[in-house]
């Protein structure tokens, strides 16, 4: 990742597309705390799925704007071809807009689902061979945007977060948020197998701070958002139980699939932002909605 501004400087305005989601709501709050003017048009106002729906955004857009693209139909809204094509249409419409009028900086929040499932440790140059339509959609959008920005004076940052957790997560996927919810309700935590799989989980507040750093430096290129430390699901469950402060059982189950691990080599992130401090799993799971650990 290249930092166009070695001395950090926040953009004069940030437009967030997809601000109603889990990351979007946290990002708005974080950027507001930093004093950045924000425009977060709701879907009713700017509909990325139709070419005409971008008209209002085009009329608002200024050359010096930075745009954070979070908008996507996530797998919980559908894993089928229809969802995939709807996501691609959003990408197509955005690319048409940027080809016509490119802002100074676009930060596209992609996913680690673009990588081959066998990539381990994952680094930015690992093979991209997504096994899901969701990953394929992000990879296609990345390539579409990169194609447009090849001929543009603007900068394009592609951020690929791994598993994100934190307060306010609307998804209930297997991992920290589901475990914490169960523990808070006093319900047992059910693991796949004995929860041996190692995964890297990044706190949503860290994702927002890294997006803000990418904006400050007008970063260009690709960067994985991961901590470099992987934990077993059993350890994550135990951490969730500690955070909930209630005695909750953690139960294993007969294993149906082989154990696989995933680690990230975060050297590029350290090189880009050398004094970045990651929130620990203990800190992140203990975090309240409105008071993130700094």
């Amino acid at each position: 990742m290249q930092l166009s501004r070695p001395s950090p400087n926040l953009p004069s305005r940030v437009i967030i597309l997809g601000s109603a989601g889990f990351i979007g709501r946290h990002l708005i709050r974080h950027l507001r705390e930093l004093g950045v003017p924000i425009l977060a048009p709701p879907r009713a106002e700017v509909d990325l799925e139709s070419a005409q729906g971008l008209g209002p955004l085009r009329s608002l857009l200024r050359r010096e704007d930075a745009i954070v693209v979070l908008a996507a139909l996530t797998p919980d809204r559908g894993r089928d071809v229809r969802t995939f094509m709807a996501n691609l249409r959003m990408g197509e419409n955005l690319c048409s807009l940027f080809a016509d009028f490119a802002p100074a900086h676009v930060v596209y929040v992609s996913s680690d689902a673009v990588y081959d499932d066998g990539a381990n440790p994952v680094r930015e140059d690992s093979s991209c061979n997504p096994s899901s339509l969701h990953g394929l959609m992000h990879l296609a959008r990345e390539r579409m945007l990169a194609h447009v920005f090849e001929k543009s004076p603007g900068s394009l940052a592609l951020l690929r977060p791994t598993l994100i957790y934190g307060p306010g997560d609307t998804h209930n996927g297997y991992g920290p948020n589901r475990f914490l919810r169960a523990a808070l309700k006093g319900e047992r935590i059910a693991l796949f197998g004995e929860g041996e799989e190692l995964r890297d989980h990044i706190f949503v507040g860290d994702v927002c701070r890294l997006i803000a750093l990418a904006l400050r430096h007008r970063a260009a290129g690709t960067l994985n958002l991961a901590t470099g430390h992987s934990h077993s699901f059993r350890d994550v469950a135990a951490t969730a139980v500690r955070a909930a402060g209630r005695p909750v059982a953690i139960e294993g189950a007969p294993r149906r699939s082989p154990v696989t691990h995933r680690h990230f080599d975060v050297t590029q992130l350290i090189k880009s932002f050398p004094n970045f401090r990651f929130t620990t799993l203990d800190e992140g799971l203990a975090a309240k909605e409105d008071e993130f650990p700094k």
């Binding site: 080599d265 050297t267 350290i270 004094n275």
Partner: peptide, 20 residues
């Protein structure tokens, strides 16, 4: 290339992420 950056990773863990 990966091992070349071992010191940077160690420094990040011990110093850079912990001290201004």
């Amino acid at each position: 290339r990966y091992r070349r950056d071992w010191v940077l990773r160690a420094l990040h863990a011990a110093v850079l992420s912990k001290q201004a």
